[in-house]
Amino acid sequence: MTCRPQYVQECKCPDEVMNCIRETLGECLLEMELRERMDGMPRRVLYRDLWIRLKRDGFLKLVDRLMEIDFLHFHVMSGNDDGDVVTLNLHCSLFREAGAGHRLGVTLSIPIPKDDLVFPSLSGRIPGTEYSEREMREMLGIHFEGLQNTDLLFLPENWDEEIKPWRRDETGPAPENIRELS
């Protein structure tokens, strides 16, 4: 794994990145969409976002491939309880230092089945992901393999860890856990 802690100064065009992703993921790619973000006067494309939906099996392979293109800048993870699966989204960007309008937002969405809520930790590759992984662990109950620190991050010390605040099923907060202030 090549992990250069520096950013590339020249970007690749989105098509090239997309081809690379298709090649790397193969079967594991579920969906891919390139969104152009328009603003300004005259109204024109100012930057682009790439939305990728993939299977969990292809995740690490894809991250390593993207890291070869540029050091993947990690923004945040978001997630939602979608019934049978918990969908985890990683919001990242490429070409952060590669010039005006060249940053490419990359979102990786991965559905994780509820009976096997395990996901590989990225904290070894990108140390900046630690907080997000801890947050997703306490809020949604996703177990990150390889995450060293599993202390609570945002919830109070005396929190009952069986309750996962963002879940919509029986593990979510019950009415008695919720306080109405006024």
């Binding site: 856990n177 109405e180 202030l181």
Partner: peptide, 18 residues
């Protein structure tokens, strides 16, 4: 004083006079 926009939550014990 009253919770205001944070009127309902799982992680609040307020308002202060509580």
């Amino acid at each position: 004083a009253s919770g205001d926009v944070f009127y309902k939550s799982y992680s609040l014990d307020g308002p202060v006079d509580n």
